[in-house]
Design a protein around this nucleic acid. Structure first.
Lengths: 229, 229, 229, 229
DNA sequence: CATGAATGAGAATTCATTCAT
DNA sequence: AATGAATGAATTCTCATTCAT
């Protein structure tokens, strides 16, 4: 499994923080708030997350909160920006995926990294899902995230299905397949984290890799030794 | 595509309504409220939906709302109960899915019905996702629905993969595959309804059917005439 | 102990009922409502008593309620009017109370009748207490009740204390003593009914009679066989 | 008459206030609210008292109210706790009460202090009576107070009636006498504050002392100079 | 920098009373 | 005579955001 991505939460703050020079203590406080927000987001979700909860967890005050973030959404956007970067970076690491064993391993590796990322940023991603319904521009940020990954996937799926496509695959649209891929892995991890699905993460990844490799990338099912954890 | 299921929204009401005998007018009002709730849910999502919005759409008063439902959640639960029933019924219609053309069609048909259901109850299902984070018993209702479908899928996936399983398919767990299937189709429809994905529904279904048939049920990709809309 | 006073609840109705001729069924319905009100009053007190509760207990409808009473207070007034009559009648039965054994027995008998009345009309009397705080004219009705009893008591207390008064009883005011008497017996019964005091009613009456006979009417404490129940 | 006890209203606050450290300003605001509550309680009683009234009198906002108290009842409980303490302290100051002049004075003094306390906390105590009907734990607090006073009284009444008891006082139960004592003085003050009784407080106390001293503690009525105001 | 205090616009809910059948 | 339905004013409570120290 890929190395855990380093947290980069303090990279950016909200609007108020960007207009000032932050000293060491300021940065520390901001990080406390961002971390606290993650905790609260995880426990209660986006809508139920109260500024009050966040400052309590961060052991600071309301006043301080607004010293670093213009409002609740601003803080959330800061978290989301980190995820966006990470996901974009991840999208770039997706190499060509052939129907052979190497393709399987490439896909497996990428999904593993996705998984790590999801486990780490899960609360934020789920919050994004939650916020999506409204006209929120948070929803729009979410779409961007989706877009980077989907674009990379379309590329690889297209490559893998060129032959098939040429001989008339009316019932296989790479764009849909890419979206379907994202849908599956995103939601499955959601089930995993919300304990609606209770299997070891590696088992989950093995199966998903198999299903996608065969179903989307034209691989064939084969007997395979259990991949190491 | 299967016939659109008739609305059965007034099957049961909220807590207050269940303690009384409802006459014709009462039933009508209750249905107005349920319909209005669907409308509002669709437009604003669960959290942003105000009782005020609902009664305005239903052209009735606050007081009347509470004559039929204990609160917003109660109404939501009434809607959910309908969905739960429908989904359970749908789960039962999933027949065996072999690797051949017939299997493909069986799967395609079932996904089509799922899709109809999802489109019909979309607002409720999306609201569900939104509400799930909280400790509500709403979350529990969600798990039940999931369970009925997943159980049916595990059965069919197991049948379709008996051979593969016997010769040591360490990287294919039917339970995970079933969950993955649900994850994919549920989430994909979510993208569809929230306009993050914009393709004709039939294209979506064709592709998903192909991916799942090949990836999960051991079918093989083949050239196929476009299925009728 | 005196015979239980017959319920006369249906004697009077509220304003709407007085403008019409009530037939047998009408009277029955009105009585059902009055009885139900007593039940609810007992269980929840005046302020917490909802019209809804009353009609539920009476197994009738809101509409019907307002066919017999102008409003909630109107109903309560009807109940109170009954109590007022009963109390006034009771006040008249208070004979002279001398310091001797006969005086003791007279007082004991009267208190017994008061007790019966309180046990019967307790909910209404307590409700009156509760309502008193506000400018309610219900409060005023309550004062009238008080007045009839207090007037009778002042008379008897005055008689019993003439000698004492004449030789300068600066620390004994018959009016206060009368009020004190009422206060004691009213409140004590309240404790009894609300289970804050748990003794047999006869014991309570014996002791109260003794205290008042000695303390207010100039009687002397003496050994006495237990009065029959 | 004893010195007026100083107000100690801010001893403890409501639930929300207890979870925080209150600074000077916070304490001041809390006290303003408690004082305002007393005022409103006095004018309107418990049920008619609106949070809105209280914050208006305290010249603060709704939001602020809920910063210090969870709700109206919570505030009320805070007031009650003070009364409970004071009453318990008062109960302890009740010395032995003999049948002689000294006993009379002891009793008179104690009743005077009780009276001061009642007048001071009148609004709260009356509100208490009003709220008692409900199943609230407020009712339970009431019983505790009653218990402390009654216990002290039973002790003193028992001492004063040992001889009488031994020669068979079947019609005098110290427990009932104690309750009767409380009932009388409590209710009488209630009448006084609700203006159903209109006499100088000293007259009231003199008469009550006489009645109880003679009726409960075995004292004898005697000519006595008017006690100083 | 940091903090506790204050605010007030919304949202939910209740319930006496009126209405239409 | 009876009833279920409807109403809406009144009330409580929440919480993001601003303020004063």
């Amino acid at each position: 499994m890929a190395a855990t991505p380093r947290r980069k939460l303090s990279t950016r703050g909200g609007a108020p923080a960007q207009e000032r020079e932050l000293r060491a203590q300021g940065k520390k406080t901001m990080r406390k708030l961002l971390d606290a927000a993650m905790t609260v987001l995880e426990k209660r979700g986006y809508h139920a997350a109260r500024v009050d909860d966040i400052v309590k967890v961060a052991r600071t005050s309301h006043g301080t909160f607004y010293l670093y973030f213009a409002n609740k959404e601003d803080l959330f956007r800061a978290l989301l920006a980190d995820v966006t970067d990470e996901v974009a970076a991840l999208a770039e690491t997706l190499g060509p995926i052939g129907p052979d064993e190497a393709g399987y391993r490439e896909l497996r590796g990428w999904l593993g990294r996705f998984s790590d990322l999801y486990v780490h940023y899960g609360p934020v991603i789920r919050a994004w899902t939650e916020a999506e319904v409204e006209g929120d521009d948070v929803g729009r940020m979410g779409e961007q995230v989706l877009t980077t990954v989907v674009t990379a996937l379309i590329q690889r799926i297209g490559e893998a299905n060129e032959a098939a496509a040429s001989n008339g695959g009316a019932d296989f649209d790479p764009q849909v397949a890419a979206m379907a891929t994202v849908a599956m892995i995103e939601r499955l991890h959601y089930y995993l984290l919300s304990r609606q699905l209770d299997v070891p993460r590696d088992d989950l990844l093995d199966t998903v890799t198999t299903v996608l490799h065969v179903g989307v990338f034209g691989g064939s099912r084969r007997k395979r030794r259990r991949s190491a954890s």
